[in-house]
Amino acid sequence: MKKLLALAALLPTLASAAGLLDSTVNVHYHFVDGSQTMNTLDKVVVGAGVELTCASSAEICNVLTAPTQSLDFSENAIRYAYVGGGADFMDVQHNRFQFTSLYGGDTAITGVQLSTNIAGMDASRITFGDHMVNVDMRALHVGADAYFQLSLVTAPVPEPASAALLVGGLALLAARRRR
């Protein structure tokens, strides 16, 4: 029992994972078809309501030309919506969304859960890192009222000092146990 109490005392207290509200997120769209290349960047502040709609002056609307598309960010989710008669994403080298600057340095993305009604869209089209998510849209057809939603699973990242304290405490316990 004493060893468990000692271990608990050595464990650092982790901060809770931060959300996206009130943060600035980078929304990129990459389209590459041979020599034709379009890369957009829109910086959006996450708040209540839809952050980006087409048609607007947003750069992404130069690639996503249907006027009935939107991106909405919430505390831990990204939702793309298309309202209209249907449209096709071309089957080219690159045709993808990229969301970067997600969360600060104290929170990392550890998983992404996809919900969608777009035929052919599945988890294999989603890649992610600590602070970014890519969504491959190549050769997908979106019908009327199509959407995808990415629910982001996050975890707090311990500060270097906290991680060092944890490692040191575990090493101390291991050395003491060997005696």
Rank of each mutant, 00 (worst) to 15 (best):
V142N: 02
L170K: 10
A163V: 11
A17G: 04
I126L: 10
M121A: 08
V135K: 00
A108M: 14
S70C: 09
P158K: 04
M90G: 11
A48S: 11
Q149T: 14
G49M: 09
M132Q: 14
L140V: 06
H28G: 12
V45W: 02
C54A: 08
I78W: 09
L21Y: 13
R96K: 09
T107W: 04
G85S: 15
L173D: 08
R176E: 15
V25K: 07
A163E: 12
Q69G: 05
F97D: 04
V167M: 09
G47S: 09
T37D: 12
G34I: 01
G111A: 05
V83Y: 11
Q98W: 06
L150H: 15
L21G: 03
Q93L: 10
L152V: 04
L170I: 15
A171H: 00
A119L: 06
A18Q: 14
I126C: 05
S16Y: 06
T37Q: 13
N26I: 12
D145Y: 14
E75P: 03
R138A: 06
A77V: 07
L14C: 11
C61T: 05
L166K: 12
H141A: 10
L52N: 00
L20A: 01
E59H: 07
A174Y: 10
A161L: 13
R177D: 14
M132G: 10
T13E: 09
L14P: 04
N95E: 15
F97Q: 05
T100D: 08
T24P: 01
S124V: 13
F97N: 05
D33E: 12
L52G: 00
C54K: 03
N39H: 12
P156W: 13
M38T: 14
F89R: 09
L64A: 09
L152S: 07
L166H: 14
S115N: 13
N62G: 15
L52I: 03
L166V: 14
T127D: 14
F89Q: 11
F99R: 09
V83K: 15
T37G: 05
A18P: 06
G143C: 01
Q36I: 13
R176P: 12
K2T: 10
F31A: 06
A58Q: 01
V44G: 00
L173W: 08
A119D: 10
A163S: 14
F31W: 07
R176D: 15
Y147E: 10
